[in-house]
Simulated assay, not measured.
Amino acid sequence: MSARLSSRKTAAALRTSARVSAELLLVLVMAAVALWVLGRMWSVVWPLIVGLFLTTLTWPLTRFLRRHGWRPALAASVVTVLFLLVAVGVAALIAVPVASQSGELTDGVVDGIAKLREWAAGPPLNIGDDQITKALDSGVARLQGSIGSITSTVVTGVSTVFNGVVTAVLALFLMFFFLKDGPRFLPWLTRQLPGRLATDIPTVAARSWDTLSAFVRSQALVGLLDAVFIGLGLWIVGVPLVLPLAVLTFVSAFVPIVGALFAGLVAVLIALVSNGLTDALIVLAIIIVVQQLEGNVFQPIIQSRGLGLHAAMVLVAVALGGNLAGVVGSLLAVPVAALIAVVWNYVREQLSDPPPAPTADDPAAVPS
């Protein structure tokens, strides 16, 4: 004989479900409003985020100088200037060798195009010069027809470059002030907040800073592994410009997805114009293997240990961030997930009941 449903318990369950659903909906609405406000303020928020990343990267040296008697302003100034010199040096390390061999690379590109035409003219394609000329004429006509969209794309690109320069300058100034006055922030924040917030928010902020520092260190380690393995592969194959390509790979590792694609494309192109198609395919295989190891092994393991996140959560966060906000979402997905975990762990600590005190009847309380 089956038991009958209790109307009282069913109504109570429905009321509880409705209340929880309404509260969850309210939380989602508030989150959507916060994201909308963040998007409206993105031109200010993005330099702030970049400045924080740069600060976590340069703070250990600043802290070392301050502990050895340097004044905060002097230590921040010296570290900022050193960072600029290193950035300029890295750019020169990449640009100067490429510029010195630009003539050889240009000749290689021309020879490569000629070889491709010879290969296309032979079997199995048997594409004649008249067909190639017709295809080129068609491409030129299409290019002329798209001149308006190309112009708008160029203008957009110039605007993007300008915005990038402005962001870099603002981030650099913010980095200087963070390095100079960063240790004063938490005491100042404690004095501004009332009641329990004066304890909770500074504690969460300190833990978030530690987590952000761990993210930057882990990302640098992943980039270093990429640069070492890809650089070693390029050196074995005999591709020129190994050191600039390795440096470019390391720097590009801080920009997920697009950075790896860009560095890999440059390496394959140089291998193609310098060593030929076979070596270019070998370099492409090396880059694919290393990038797969990075995305599926190195990055999840290293970041999961440094950030306290499971490797699967790192993969899910990167995929979700990329789908929601593209490259920027991929870049910020892991630190945002780690910061959410920090807040959740702190809230759970505050809401958890303290462990019961041991009693005389408890065997664990009796000393052995």
Rank of each mutant, 00 (worst) to 15 (best):
L65Q: 01
L234K: 01
L284V: 02
K115I: 02
I270S: 03
R207V: 00
A92I: 07
T133K: 14
N163R: 13
E294N: 15
S149I: 08
W209H: 05
V204K: 00
L265H: 02
A87C: 09
I230F: 08
A271Q: 06
V140N: 10
I127D: 15
E118W: 04
V266K: 02
V216A: 02
F176M: 01
E349Y: 12
T359C: 02
L221S: 13
D130T: 15
S304D: 07
A75R: 00
S159L: 08
F177W: 14
L5C: 07
L307F: 04
L232V: 14
N323W: 09
A75F: 05
P335F: 02
A220W: 11
V161D: 06
V166Q: 08
F64I: 04
L35V: 14
V96C: 00
Q292W: 09
A91E: 09
W188I: 00
F53H: 06
V45D: 04
T359P: 00
A135P: 13
L332V: 11
G326S: 07
Q292C: 10
P355S: 12
I147Q: 11
I286L: 13
P240Y: 07
V110Y: 11
A267I: 01
L212K: 00
G259V: 05
G195K: 03
G321D: 07
A317K: 00
A18T: 09
T160K: 08
P363C: 06
L315N: 04
P187T: 06
G231W: 06
W59N: 04
G295M: 03
S17D: 08
P300L: 01
V316A: 14
V37N: 06
A114R: 12
A357W: 10
Q292H: 10
V27Q: 08
L186D: 01
F215G: 05
A11R: 15
S17A: 14
L24D: 06
L212D: 05
T151K: 12
D353A: 13
D181V: 00
R117M: 11
V96W: 11
T211H: 00
Q350K: 14
R196Y: 11
A357T: 13
T133I: 09
L243R: 04
L241A: 11
L261M: 13
R196W: 09
P354C: 04
P363S: 06
